[in-house]
C-alpha cells in the first residue's frame, strides 16, 4: 500500500514538472533604438597580409527625434598604409543584390592612426566601409580598431574590433614569366629576371621557368638551377647559378588572393610553416593553369607557394606567390 502511494506521488510530480517545462516564453518585440547606436562587421576573410586591405562595414544610426549624424572615425592601433580610407558613401543592397552607394559626406582624411569622415548631408543612419591597408610595420603583429560616431546632440558611440593577427607572409601577384627571356625567379626578391639581370645576382636565383613541348609531359616547368640536366634541356644558365630549391607540386589549391579573388581557399602562415618538404625534388614539370608548387629555398630561409594563374602554348605563364620567412 505504501509503495503504491509513493509511485502515485512520483507520477504526479513528474507530470507537474512536464507541465512547467513546457511553458512557452512569449516573444517580445525588441525596444526601438532610442539613442545613438553603432555596429560593425569585418568583411574580409582569410589571412591578413601586408599590402592587402582589411574591409569593414560600420553601421550607425540615431533616432530622428534625437538629431543627425555628424562624423565617423576609425582609430587603428597601427597606422594604416597609403590607401587607407573610410568611405564617404553609404551603401545599401538593392533587390538584385547589388550594393548601391549614396553620397553622405566629404572624402575621409587620415592623420596618423585616425581616419575621419564628416557628414555633409542630413542623415540619421548610414553604413560606411572602412579599408585599412596593412602596413609593413604590422607584419606579425596584432592590429585592432576603434570605430566611433558623433551625433548632433553631442553623443558619441564606439565599437571595438580586433585584435587581428597580421600574417608574416608577403604576397606578389601576376608575375609574367617567359621561356628563355624573363625566366629566372628569385624568391627572396619575389621577382622575375632575364639572364643578364640574373647573372648579376646568381645567389638570389632559386628557380628557372622553362617550356618544352616535347616530351608532352614536360610543358611548363619550374626547375632549380642545380637540378639534373635532364630537367633543363637546352638551357644555358648564367654563370654562378647553382641553388637547389625544393619543390612540391600541388593541385586544386587555388588561393583566393593569388587567384585574383576567385575560389574560396586561403593559404596561411601555418600551411607554409608546416608543409613537409623533406626529400622533395628540385624540379616541378608538367605544370598547368591553377596548379601550384610549394617551394623551400636552398638556405631554408624562405618557403613560398607559387600559383600558376595562366599559361600559353607559346611558352609564357603568369604566376603569383606567397612567401614566408622561416
Amino acid at each position: 500500500m505504501r509503495n503504491k502511494n509513493i509511485q502515485f506521488s512520483f507520477l504526479v510530480i513528474m507530470m507537474l514538472a512536464s507541465l512547467v517545462a513546457c511553458k512557452k516564453e512569449e516573444y517580445t518585440i525588441p525596444d526601438a533604438v532610442s539613442q545613438l547606436t553603432n555596429d560593425c562587421i569585418k568583411r574580409t576573410i582569410g589571412p591578413s597580409i601586408v599590402s592587402l586591405p582589411l574591409e569593414f562595414a560600420y553601421a550607425m544610426a540615431i533616432p530622428k527625434s534625437s538629431g543627425k549624424l555628424v562624423s565617423a572615425q576609425v582609430e587603428a592601433s597601427i597606422a594604416g598604409a597609403s590607401g587607407t580610407y573610410l568611405e564617404h558613401r553609404s551603401f545599401f543592397t538593392n533587390s538584385s543584390g547589388v550594393d548601391v552607394p549614396v553620397l553622405v559626406g566629404s572624402p575621409s582624411l587620415t592623420v596618423d592612426k585616425t581616419t575621419k569622415m564628416t557628414y555633409s548631408i542630413d542623415t540619421n543612419a548610414a553604413t560606411l566601409r572602412y579599408y585599412y591597408v596593412i602596413p609593413e610595420e604590422a607584419r606579425g603583429q596584432s592590429v585592432s580598431f576603434t570605430f566611433s560616431v558623433t551625433s548632433s546632440d553631442g553623443k558619441t558611440a564606439s565599437y571595438k574590433m580586433g585584435p587581428y593577427t597580421v600574417s608574416r607572409m608577403s604576397i606578389k601577384k601576376n608575375l609574367a614569366v617567359s621561356n628563355g627571356v624573363n625566366a629566372f625567379i628569385s624568391i627572396e626578391d619575389m621577382a622575375v629576371y632575364n639572364a643578364a639581370a640574373a647573372a648579376a645576382i646568381p645567389g638570389k636565383i632559386d628557380l628557372v621557368y622553362l617550356f618544352r613541348a616535347v616530351p608532352t609531359t614536360f610543358t611548363h616547368a619550374l626547375v632549380s638551377p642545380a637540378a639534373d640536366a635532364a630537367y633543363l634541356p637546352g638551357v644555358t644558365l648564367p654563370a654562378g647559378l647553382n641553388r637547389s630549391t625544393k619543390l612540391r607540386k600541388v593541385f586544386n589549391l587555388q588561393d583566393r588572393n593569388l587567384a585574383n579573388l576567385q575560389f574560396g581557399i586561403y593559404v596561411d602562415d601555418v600551411d607554409l610553416k608546416n608543409v613537409d618538404m623533406v626529400d622533395m625534388p628540385n624540379y616541378a614539370i608538367g605544370l598547368r593553369a591553377e596548379a601550384g608548387v610549394w617551394v623551400e629555398t636552398a638556405d631554408k630561409k624562405y618557403r613560398a607557394y607559387i600559383f600558376v594563374n595562366s599559361i600559353t602554348a607559346a611558352g609564357t605563364a603568369v604566376i603569383s606567390m606567397l612567401r614566408y620567412t622561416l
Partner: peptide
Amino acid sequence: VLFGTDLKN
C-alpha cells in the same frame, strides 16, 4: 610512369 616522376614521393 611519366618522365620526371619523383618516385621518392
